[in-house]
Structure formats: structure tokens, C-alpha cells
Design a binder for these strands. Structure first.
Lengths: 192, 192
DNA sequence: ACTGTAGCGGAGGCTACCCTCCACTTCAAA
DNA sequence: TTTGAAGTGGAGGGTAGCCTCCGCTACAGT
């Protein structure tokens, strides 16, 4: 219900500190965590995160009392960015707008993949992010569907899961990933 | 080079013991490991695997000196089964044969997903499995492609990665998974 | 039935990581 | 500039999982 005005990161339990040095540490931790999770998955060592950020382990725990806080903060940050991109592409042609946004979505799945295994579907933050993302990307989908570019028998949810699955897989090279995404999108476009 | 006559499990480093009780333990461990990996991913506790199999931890280590041995054995077992299915469906219609086999392949990706993160691409067993699987499923693909059922600009490798990605994703219900696989396969079928 | 040996279980040392606690440091408001 | 509150780092106790070692068990060949 708040998702259309606030960025989702606003409802995350952790709070960016006011003091300058503390705020810098907070940002460094968030960046380090994103990196570590993308690299080692959800099980990444928190001591390693602190090390990457160049801060003590206590500083990590003060800002993010549990692993879950860290997940939610990283995730919300990423979703905010995704929503911003949706606004940016809104004025392009229906199909072009949708696929441009999906391009950014592919990058997002890297973070998501690690976090998804740890954040159950009932997490308040997770649900808010999902809603927020649907509000941002959904209109792009609807517009493409109404323009007859997307077949009528699938939902936005279907499309996201399809893209998410394909892009979350290992590929020897990015060209193959793009080729296969293209093939699958041909299926999405097929007229019925 | 051996893949067309031997099952790949034959080249796995671990060996099924001769003695009756030991062989039973070996099988129990393999089944327990498959279960544990599917449930908890590649990081599953080996002590938990032994517990599930109802044997001591030492018995696990005697049969599978390292975690990697266990991975490779479980994986090879699964691939053998997949090859067997390919033989079974060989006499059906081209497209039907291919999609039936892909149906079994979907189940295989559950095991694969956990193991893939831990087994690097240079693993001898991994390569043998891959080759074996290509020899089994490849002809089904080629036949469908020559029959004009599959577009000409993709490879068997492309198809497997696509299916693997989609089926490895979490879905609230199986119907949605199947629907989306169907959409993607429409893209594979699209005539060019 | 006997017996040697392959196979067994689990205790225990080791390591990596979790998380708390507290003496020290740094910021920013007055 | 002072000062105290907010913030900091890392030592260290606790836990979970890894893997080895060794005295015991039970299979299978004679």
C-alpha cells in the first residue's frame, strides 16, 4: 500500500545512520554484502562481508542485527533501482520498453538468486518489494499485451519467472544467454 | 569415448562394495545424499547425510572420501537414468520424443542445480556425464530439427540450458512451471 | 563352525564462523 | 574547544560441521 510513493528500502528494518562516518560504513557494508552474496550465495560469511567493507564485525552487527536484515536491505536497494529504470523506459514503444526493462531485470536476478533461498515468501519486505516491482513493471507488460505484442494467455508473473529462470542459469558466455532469452521471448510473442 | 557403451557411473571414482551389508550402506548413502542435496543444496551437512542413511560418519567417508566423490556419484547415477529414458522414447514421433525426454530432464535439474555449484566444469566425471547425455538426447533433438519441428538457429545445448534454467526456478505450483515451459518451447518451435 | 579380514560406529581434535561485550575513538552540537 | 553520546574494532566464548583414528562387529570363504 505504501509501495507507489515510498521506495521499498524505506520500510526495511535497518536505518542508515546520521553521522557521516557511520553512514559511510553503512553504505560500504551494503555494497560488500551485495558482492559477497552474489559471489558465495546466501551462506556467505558475515565476517567476510565486514572484511570486504573494511569495518569490524561489530559494526556490521550494529547496522544489521541479523543476516536477514542484511538480505532485506540489499534486496530492497536493488528493487528500488529496478523501479527507477521502469520509469525511465516508460515512454518507448511497448515491446521495446518491456524488453529494455527486462534487460535490467536480468542483472537483478543475480542478487535475487542468492537472497531468494534465504528469504521466505512471507517476509514483509519481500512482499513489499514484489508489489513494488509489479507496480513498476506491470504497466509495461500490460501495454505490450494490449498492443498485441505479447500473447494473451500469460501473466506478468509468468514472464518474470521465465526470464528469471533463464538468466539465473550459468552460461559460458553472455551471447548464448541473450540468444536463449530471445528464443524464449519469441514464445512470449507468438500470436494466439 | 567410453560413454556409448558403459554407464557413466562406471567411471566414477567410488566403487560399490562387494560385501552385502556394505553394498546396502553404499546405496543408502547415495539415496540419502541425493535427498539431502536436493533439500539443502551443495552445502548439506555430511553428518546429516550419514544420519539419514542410518550409518556412521566413518562409513560415509570410507565410500566417498570427499564431498566431491559423493557429488559425482549421485550425479552420474542420475545421468545414467536420463540416458535410459532417452532409449525408451526413441521410437516415438520426433517432437513427442524430444518433449517426453525433456520432461524427465526437468526432474534431473533438481539434482543438478545443487551439484552444479560445487562441481567445476573441468571435472572428468562432469564432462563424461555431459558427453553421455548429449549422445543420448542429441539424436532426439537432431531428428526433431530435421523434421522441421525445431527452428534451425539453436543448438541442443541452447535448449538444455533454457529448460534447465526455467525448471530450476521456484514455482508456487507445477502447473505454472509447465505452462511457462510450454511458452518457451513455442519459441523453440517457431518457424524461421 | 571357524576365523581372518573387510567393514563398522562414534568419540574427539580441529577449524570456521557466529555473535557479544567492552574499552577506546571520533563526530558534531553547544 | 569542549564534551558526551554515537560509533568502532577485535578478542573470545560458544557451536556446528569436518575428518581421523581405533577398538569392535559380522560377513563369507573354507
Amino acid at each position: 500500500m505504501t509501495a507507489d510513493t515510498f521506495p521499498v528500502s524505506a520500510i526495511v528494518a535497518s536505518q542508515r545512520p546520521h553521522r557521516k562516518d557511520a553512514a559511510r560504513n553503512y553504505d560500504a557494508l551494503l555494497a560488500a554484502a551485495r558482492e559477497a552474496f552474489a559471489e558465495n550465495g546466501a551462506e556467505a560469511s558475515l565476517e567476510d562481508v565486514a572484511r570486504r567493507a573494511g569495518v569490524g564485525i561489530a559494526t556490521l552487527y550494529r547496522n544489521f542485527p541479523t543476516r536477514r536484515h542484511l538480505f532485506e536491505s540489499v534486496y530492497a536497494d536493488e528493487v528500488d533501482d529496478l523501479c527507477r529504470v521502469a520509469r525511465e523506459v516508460a515512454d518507448r514503444e511497448p515491446w521495446e520498453a518491456l524488453t529494455s526493462w527486462l534487460g535490467r531485470f536480468v542483472a537483478y536476478t543475480v542478487t535475487k538468486r542468492a537472497i531468494r533461498e534465504a528469504l521466505d515468501n512471507e517476509s514483509e519486505v519481500f512482499l513489499a518489494c514484489r508489489e513494488s516491482m509489479f507496480q513498476a513493471g506491470g504497466p509495461l507488460f500490460d501495454r505490450a499485451q494490449q498492443a498485441g505484442e505479447v500473447r494473451g494467455d500469460i501473466s506478468f508473473d509468468d514472464l518474470l519467472r521465465m526470464v528469471s529462470g533463464i538468466s539465473g542459469t550459468y552460461f559460458p558466455d553472455d551471447a548464448q544467454r541473450d540468444r536463449i532469452l530471445g528464443v524464449a521471448l519469441d514464445g512470449v510473442r507468438a500470436n494466439r
